[in-house]
Design a protein around this nucleic acid. Structure first.
Lengths: 119, 119
DNA sequence: TCAAACCCTCACACAGATGTGAAGGTCAAG
DNA sequence: CTTGACCTTCACATCTGTGTGAGGGTTTGA
């Protein structure tokens, strides 16, 4: 698949697909003519990336946690350095905090909307 | 309370407190000498703002949803225009999506860590 | 009274994610 | 063979949240 199709299927500007590649978040092979070629699983990966960016994670962190989100699950023991594991743990905790915070606030908004609707 | 104390109690640079004010997220009165004066509840508000920013919401949206997150809960029927309610609803849904997405990914990270620890 | 620790405004700088466009190569269809 | 749709790289621009510092006024305490 070339960049145009990937762009269409992930609803992501080509510019950003090249940017994600530059940041080491996705890979592409090259056709003889220099065009980027992506495999099928890149679609999911880009969706994943966009979701994480939207949730406030920087590409730097996304790059670190992506390898352990692959499906089918492959445990990369080789690159699991202690620093890497520490990063993962702290990021997991940060995400938990974010989830709790977002949940509280979303519920407050929902309650507000209910009250307005009832009032 | 002046800006220094608010900064210390919320662990937020003064610069940002002025920025949040500029963006209409917090209010301050002024002392005779021109110094900003904040009331007690601004502390919670700033914490709220930082959490929402960290969760990926822009100040533009935060400004809209903050009024309905006040405690004690005050329903502002007056400013609840249909557009405003629509914004709130869509933002609530976006937050739900974010929560679901973050949860899935956090769980995947947690699983990975478990697997590594067991392996 | 003088220093230190506050506060003010203004303004330029930076990083990350993204927009936009120039200048040019490739390829398929008319 | 040419046109249009696709691709390439490069580079400059924009927006948001921050950092930083200049230049200057105020308050507090030794």
């Amino acid at each position: 698949m070339r960049i145009g199709e990937l762009s269409a299927r992930t609803d992501t500007p080509r510019r950003l697909l090249r940017y994600y590649e530059e940041q080491g978040l996705i890979l592409s092979s090259r056709c003889a003519n220099g065009y980027r070629a992506y495999d099928e699983q890149t679609v999911d990966r880009v969706v994943q990336i966009r979701g994480l960016l939207d949730a406030g994670l920087p590409t730097r962190i996304i790059k670190q946690i992506l390898p352990c989100l692959d499906k089918p699950r492959v445990i990369h023991f080789s690159d699991a350095t202690p620093e890497m594991l520490a990063t993962l743990e702290s990021e997991r905790d940060r995400m938990s905090e974010r989830i709790a915070f977002l949940t509280r606030n979303r519920d407050a908004i929902a309650e507000y909307l209910e009250a307005v609707r009832a009032g």
